[in-house]
Design a protein around this nucleic acid. Structure first.
Lengths: 64, 64
DNA sequence: ATTTGATGCAATATTTATCTTGCATTAGTA
DNA sequence: TACTAATGCAAGATAAATATTGCATCAAAT
């Protein structure tokens, strides 16, 4: 599962810790989600999407 | 948090139990997500979206 | 060479989603 | 009326997400 979260975060010039703070998560959580080793909650996905000015589909949806 | 999941499910003529089976969840889980009392995992959201022929944004995103 | 910031990794603890089971209720229908 | 299907609700158990802490590594800057 490859998501575009890391790419977008780096594009925005944000560090994992900065993004984590914005979405009330931890750096570790962000890192593991980026690596595809976590199955994050919907609320966290939404918070991340908003922090990165993207939508859920942009970051977490892959066309069939 | 009002989502369009229940509306879409009913439109598709599916029962909570039928949808639950398709996404490997329980009827209760589906019911609680529909009521907005659960914060489902991304994987479950994706499975639900695919089962209903919708995308994440269709079901779980609300424009700012 | 050393310091600092960013990330990776890993063990444990805590919180929360999800399951399991069971019963109540409602609507439809035979 | 009785029967069935669909949904609501709720308590306890389990699994998984997330937090916490600490240390290692690597790159960039001093």
């Amino acid at each position: 599962m490859v998501n575009k979260m890391k790419l977008t975060r780096v594009e925005r010039g944000l560090t994992q810790a900065q993004l984590a703070k914005q979405v009330n998560a931890t750096r570790q959580t962000i890192g593991l989600i980026e690596k595809g080793e976590y199955n994050p909650s919907l609320n966290l996905c939404i918070a991340i999407a908003k922090a990165l000015n993207k939508t859920l589909d942009d970051l977490f949806w892959e066309g069939d």
